[in-house]
């Protein structure tokens, strides 16, 4: 068997749009209340991108900050992966636009879409190139402008999501550190439960699809909730098993930020105290692919995450898809 290079995270970055939309702001638009939203979801406010801002704009800033933190020049990048489900357009790939904005002239670039799991999938894919020695520096970004896909007359979805971007530069690290386990999964039988029905080859855009509001995110909340509660704990345990860690070994648990009650339930199942669980959905809502990398960046920049710390990250989302990752925060670049 060939010897694989250990891969870790060299640096992180994030970007949140300035505009804040509070629960209160929805009260004049739809039948809802701050109290209802907080008790059902834990969300208090979310960020909203400017009308002229698209995913590549948010991704670019987060990516640039991650490069600075990692001490990597854009021209040193070998690959850029942008994970999202709200790309600038169907064509071209947002990752190409980000590469251009960054001046990453040498880098290959592609988009990856596994909804809220895109950052985990992106890290899983990007790390393979480094492990095999094909590449040395890979930028993985999770970015979303979900506000432009919200039906602001549907109270079951529009209060849940927010805009933002988070990024990580992956590179070789000292042997035995970095990404210790990756677990990915998908189940298309649940594809009907969460998605944007029209605008693709199944239901191309027509005057009718527009009128029926089929270009917005639709969700069967109950089914997705059931799936999420089940998969969050299962996927975390799978990563622990592959990494050969015990639950007690976890320093920080960074779950996808969809609903506080899903996070509570997973933390309980894993026996982790909430002081070791990343929570940002109260401030940002569900940012899909951006939730995990933004949480990670905040914890790195605040100094919470230190070399040697063991992290478990778990994502789940439309597809249905899920993924988990065990990372031992590395001390040095390899």
């Amino acid at each position: 068997m060939i010897k694989l290079q250990s891969v870790g995270i060299w640096g992180t970055g994030s970007y949140l749009p300035e505009k804040i939309m509070t629960n209160k702001d929805f009260e004049s638009m739809i039948e809802t209340s701050d109290e209802w939203i907080v008790t059902r979801t834990g969300i208090r406010e979310r960020r909203i991108a400017k009308p002229e801002e698209a995913v590549s704009d948010l991704a670019y800033v987060a990516g640039q900050r991650a490069l600075e933190a990692a001490g990597v020049h854009p021209e040193e990048l070998d690959l850029i992966i942008v994970g999202s489900c709200t790309f600038d357009a169907y064509l071209p790939a947002s990752a190409c636009l980000v590469a251009d904005k960054l001046g990453a002239k040498r880098a290959a670039a592609f988009d990856l879409e596994t909804a809220c799991t895109s950052f985990i999938y992106g890290c899983a894919v990007g790390s393979q190139f480094i492990a095999t020695g094909t590449y040395r520096r890979v930028l993985v970004i999770g970015a979303e402008v979900l506000s432009k896909f919200m039906d602001y007359s549907d109270r079951n979805t529009c209060v849940l999501f927010g805009d933002g971007a988070g990024a990580a530069v992956l590179g070789p690290v000292e042997e035995g550190a970095g990404i210790k386990a990756v677990h990915l999964g998908a189940d298309g039988s649940g594809g009907k439960d969460l998605g944007v029905p029209a605008g693709g080859s199944r239901l191309p855009a027509t005057a009718e699809t527009l009128e029926q509001r089929q270009h917005y995110v639709k969700m069967n909340g109950k089914e997705v909730y059931k799936f999420a509660v089940r998969i969050m704990g299962d996927a975390a345990e799978k990563a622990l098993e592959i990494a050969d860690w015990e639950k007690e070994d976890i320093d920080f648990f960074i779950p996808h930020q969809a609903n506080m009650r899903i996070i509570d339930s997973a933390a309980k199942k894993l026996g982790i105290g909430m002081e070791r669980v990343a929570v940002n959905l109260d401030r940002y809502g569900n940012m899909s692919a951006a939730s995990i990398p933004v949480a990670l960046d905040e914890m790195v920049r605040s100094g919470q995450i230190q070399p040697g710390h063991r992290l478990i990250m778990v994502g789940f989302g439309a597809g249905l898809t899920w993924g988990s990752m065990a990372v031992e925060w590395a001390i040095s670049k390899g």
Binding site: T39, R40, K222, Y225, K226, V229, R230, N259, R261, S265
Partner: peptide
């Protein structure tokens, strides 16, 4: 119990 409690209870 609210709707989410019921979902978890049934599970």
């Amino acid at each position: 119990a609210d709707s989410l409690d019921i979902v978890e209870l049934v599970m």
